[in-house]
Design a binder for these strands. Structure first.
Lengths: 164, 164
DNA sequence: GTGCGTGCAAAGACTTTGCACGTAC
DNA sequence: GTACGTGCAAAGTCTTTGCACGCAC
């Protein structure tokens, strides 16, 4: 990806990110809950992470920002954000819990290197087209999808398999 | 899927299933481990399950067959089967651990109903083609993939969202 | 007798829950 | 004062590990 394309993508994402807190607020109101500083803090940290993140990272980020938000609250907020359709579990790895920001952006697909575990995110419009075609044939209404391609990246082709 | 197609598929799968224990045995030998009755029992139970399964189901199946194989051994065997490339984690749900049989069969993709959590497996050749094209462009060597399409199935269109 | 395999129970990693206290309308 | 939110610690769920015993070559 060129620097130019990446910059354009970032600007587009920042524009999309702006209303996220509004989306969250709207959802909370609809279920009669409040938009508290803790909840806002968690969402902000997620937006900063831009895409894929782990709970552990989020907790660190919040700690770094001197926001003292308990683990319990973070987990509770993650569930609310899921309900709001803002994030979804990414499930890269069974042990660690990864989530990804999904609201207002095309689903990010992942290529995972089976040698090193390295994850590269990408979006391919053809996947979406194919997904919608498959759904149409089956009579389903598509909502989103998750695609993980496992393979060996050229950089890691000589690497040892991970310790696991 | 018609009864005829399903029968044909089953026969094909049974043919493919036969050598699975040989594949496992070969892998075990290559890492200087033994093909024990416990390990065979776990693999058999997985083959019976045909595709997607959870650890809990496996444990029940083994118990039903009066095979007393401890949970620890099942988990240890699952790891070996993963190493052998026979199964892989399916990660449908963060809580339950799902696995799927992958050796010698096209990866099964899943459509997950967001209303009910119902999972339907399918295989679409175009997905594989697209996957390989994406890999080629990126210089990766494809190994396998996992695709989950989330949507609303026609049968469940009126259903309540799950309790979660 | 060395190496591997197993079951059991304990320990781990991560997540959820119960509870008491706070705060806002 | 009612309803919701939070932190803390405890409980829970699922998985892995430590250890002693057993078996096979």
């Amino acid at each position: 990806m060129s620097a130019k394309a990446s910059t354009a993508a970032r600007i587009a994402e920042e524009a999309a990110a702006a209303p996220l807190c509004a989306v969250f607020r709207r959802h909370l109101r609809s279920v009669r809950l409040k938009y508290t500083p803790e909840r806002a803090g968690v969402l902000d940290a997620i937006i900063e992470r831009d895409g894929l993140f782990e709970v552990e990272e989020l907790l660190n980020d919040l700690r770094d920002r001197r926001l003292r938000i308990s683990k319990a609250t973070v987990y509770r907020t993650l569930r609310l954000l899921q309900d709001a359709g803002i994030i979804m579990p990414a499930q890269i790895d069974a042990r660690q819990s990864h989530y990804q920001l999904v609201y207002g952006r095309a689903p990010r697909d992942q290529m995972v290197c089976v040698r090193t575990g390295r994850v590269i995110e990408f979006t391919d419009p053809e996947i979406r087209t194919l997904r919608d075609r498959i759904c149409r044939r089956a009579g389903w209404a598509p909502v989103t999808h998750r695609l993980q391609i496992f393979g060996v990246s050229p950089e890691d082709a000589g690497a040892e398999p991970p310790a696991s």
